[in-house]
Design a protein around this nucleic acid. Sequence first.
DNA 1: TCCTTTCTGGAACATTTATTCCGTAAAGAT
DNA 2: ATCTTTACGGAATAAATGTTCCAGAAAGGA
Lengths: 195, 195
Amino acid sequence: MARAKEFQIDEVLDKAVNLFWNKGYNGISAEELVQGLGLSRSSLYDTFGDKHSLFIQALKRYREKITGDVIAHLDRAENIPEAIKEIFVWSQNSALQATGPRGCFMVNSRIELAPHDSGISDVVQENWQALEDAYQRAIKRGQEKGQIAKSHNPRALARFVLTNSWGLSAYGRGTADKKVFDDIIKIVLSTLKSD
Amino acid sequence: MARAKEFQIDEVLDKAVNLFWNKGYNGISAEELVQGLGLSRSSLYDTFGDKHSLFIQALKRYREKITGDVIAHLDRAENIPEAIKEIFVWSQNSALQATGPRGCFMVNSRIELAPHDSGISDVVQENWQALEDAYQRAIKRGQEKGQIAKSHNPRALARFVLTNSWGLSAYGRGTADKKVFDDIIKIVLSTLKSD
DNA sequence: TCCTTTCTGGAACATTTATTCCGTAAAGAT
DNA sequence: ATCTTTACGGAATAAATGTTCCAGAAAGGA
C-alpha cells in the first residue's frame, strides 16, 4: 500500500467553498488557493484537477450542504410561513456578520460565470430548480393547512420567495442595513398569508 | 493646439460599460478591452488611466444613463403601479434577448467586487440609495393618489420592489424563463395594490 | 528489511496580464 | 511653412497566473 493523504478531501472542499464564495472564481489566484487550503500545489492538482474542476466540486459541495439543509428544513416544516421566515433570518444573520463570505455562493457564481460557462451554469440552474421545487412543495402544503393564501399558485409563490431571497443575497454582499431585511421579511410573509 | 482625439470619450465609455457588464471586471482582459473599445492601448491608458479607473468611470456612466432613466421615469409617472410594471418589463425584455449583457451592471459589480473594493462599493451603494429614494417618492405619491395600499410604509415598499428587481437581475443573468418574470411582476404588483 | 506506491514540497515553466515606452503622425497656432 | 503639442500604433516589459515536473519522504505489504 501507498502513503495516505495528509488531509481530508471534504475538509479541503469546505475550505475551497469558503475561499471561492468569498472572492469569486476569477478573484482568487491559484497561489491564494494553495495557501488557504493548506496543502501543496501538487497534492491540490493531483486530487482535484485544475482550478475550474475544483470550483465545480466546491459548488457541488455547497449544494449538498447548504442547499440540502434548506430543502430538508422546508420538507420537514409544519408551520410553513415560520419555516420560510427562519430561512430569511438565517441569511440575514450571515449577511450582517462581517466575517466570512457573504451572499449566496450560487447567486454569486451565476452572476460571475453563468453567461460564459455552461458547466457552471448547469450546476447553478439545477440548484435554483431544486429550491423552487422545495418551496413549491412547502407552499402547497401550507395552503392545504390554511397557513398560506390561495390567491396565487404555489409555483408562482415559490418563485416569488426565491426571487426575494436572491435579491437579499445580492444586497447582503455589500454594505447592508438590518432594516432592509426586516422590511422584506415582513412584506414577503404578509404577502404569503394575505389574499 | 495639438492633434484631436479620434474618438468620442462617451462613446468609448458606453462600449466599456457593455464590455464590463457582459464579462465582469476580472473576467475581461486589457487585451479584450483594447479590441472591444477600438482604440489603441496608449490612447486608452492616456485617456482613462488604468483598468480600475476605467471601470469606475464605466460604473458612473451607467449610473447616469440607466439608473438616471429609471429614476426620471418614476419621478415623471402619473400611474405609479403602471410605471413600476414598465420597469420590470423592461428588465425582463433585456434578460430574455440572448444578445448583449444581462442582469444589472450594478448588481453584478456589487457581487463581484463590493466586499473587497471600497471604491466600487461606494458607487454601487449610492446607486441603490438613489433608486430606493426614487421608488419611495413614487410609492408615497401612489399612496396619496389611492393607487397603492397603505398597509406598508413607502420606504419598506420601495425596498421590497428593489429587492425583487435585484433578484430578477440575478435570475436573468443565467438561463431565464419568461414565466418567472411574469409570476414575480404579478405578485409584486398585487402586493403593492392590496391591503 | 526492502519494495512498491503515492504523497509532498518546491523549483520550474509557459502563458497571460496589466502597463509603459517610443518613434511617428496629425492638427492647429504663429 | 514651421513649431509645438498631443494622439496613435505597436513593440517591449515586468509581474502574476495556472500548471507541470521532479526528487525525496512516508506508509504499508512481502
